[in-house]
């Protein structure tokens, strides 16, 4: 194809997206579109499965049977969401194993928030309320993104995820209304998870790369700073409602903006964790790689068995 032909195809492609048409796997697409989607979608999938670890940590210790089944179902959903997203990414011509390889070798990233430890039960509440809350703000607009398989996966994810945040908030509410010990536990979890949750919405707009292109492809509908503001504005009243204090002395309602002003985020901490030096980065990767390696003989056995069965079936047919 000549360069001019490619430019013309690209023009038509961008026009289709601007008209809100969906792009499907076999459609022609610019290489950059493919690569950007592989990166963002696999990163999203990785976040789901690495995200299983901090919460999975509390399954055996959940304080009641009701909490235990809810937590199990939630962590299981995350496996499901990882699976939907890996499958959607596979339509772009990359296998799940290749994506795992990228995760395990550190080539691919996942959400930094999961590199923090879950040290008390209240962390299950804080993650559901804050981390899932921030994730939903990011994810809902993606139900209408330009790449069909991604949009469809996100519709399924968002539908299933609606209970996650409620579950988290309910845990927090119960603790906040409980004994002084429980309330302290809840406040401590909020103190630890608040700032990482704000960081989760990404670097500030002035340093964020890719944004313009991502807006055009509907991989992003709002800037990081706007999303962060939205998250803060919706979360502060929820904290007030259950009598917990947001750990930010500079937090103040700004009548003029109709939004909360908030304090300085420690971006050094953010970049330290992103670069692999958070409290749990090494443990999380060790757990993922370990599960994959321990499972290898199982996956191989299943394939070997399937092949034997196939051979037997063919022999019978002869």
């Amino acid at each position: 194809m000549s360069e001019e032909q490619i430019r013309s195809l690209e023009r038509q492609f961008e026009e289709r997206i601007a008209r809100d048409e969906k792009i499907e796997p076999k459609d022609w697409m610019p290489e950059k579109y493919r690569q950007t989607h592989i990166r963002q979608m696999s990163q999203h999938a990785h976040s789901e499965i690495v995200g299983m670890l901090p919460e999975g940590n509390w399954i055996t210790r959940a304080p009641s049977l009701r909490r235990k089944v809810a937590l199990l179902a939630k962590v299981q959903d995350e496996a499901g969401h990882g699976l939907y997203l890996y499958s959607a990414t596979e339509t772009l011509g990359i296998s799940r194993d290749e994506m795992y390889e990228q995760l395990h070798t550190g080539k691919a990233k996942y959400s930094s928030i999961f590199n923090y430890p879950t040290i008390t039960w209240a962390d299950m509440g804080a993650i559901g309320w804050l981390v899932d809350g921030a994730a939903i703000i990011n994810q809902v607009p993606l139900c209408n993104t330009s790449y069909g398989p991604y949009a469809r996966a996100m519709i399924r994810v968002c539908k299933e995820e609606s209970f996650h945040q409620r579950q988290g908030f309910e845990i927090m509410m119960k603790l906040a209304n409980g004994t002084p010990e429980q309330k302290d536990m809840a406040q401590d979890a909020l103190n630890r998870w608040w700032w990482p949750s704000l960081m989760m919405l990404g670097p500030t707009d002035d340093v964020s790369v890719h944004t313009e292109q991502s807006m055009k492809w509907k991989l992003k509908r709002k800037s990081n700073d706007d999303l962060r503001q939205q998250f803060i504005d919706q979360t502060v009243p929820q904290a007030d409602l259950i009598g917990l204090t947001i750990p930010d002395p500079d937090l103040k309602w700004n009548e003029e903006r109709g939004s909360y002003d908030f304090g300085e985020i420690d971006w050094d901490e953010f970049w330290q964790v992103v670069k692999g030096h958070g409290p749990m980065n090494k443990e999380r990767m060790k757990a993922r790689v370990g599960a994959w390696e321990r499972g290898e003989w199982v996956r191989d056995a299943a394939m070997a068995h399937a092949e034997k069965k196939q051979v037997r079936k063919e022999k019978q047919a002869v």
Binding site: G80, R152, R156, A302, M303, H305, A306, K309, Q310
Partner: peptide, 19 residues
């Protein structure tokens, strides 16, 4: 409704049920 990985058709059915 989507896709998944499985070694054979029986496993694919079981996985589909679970997923």
């Amino acid at each position: 409704c989507g896709s998944l990985h499985a070694a054979d058709s029986e496993m694919a059915l079981e996985n589909a049920r679970d997923v």
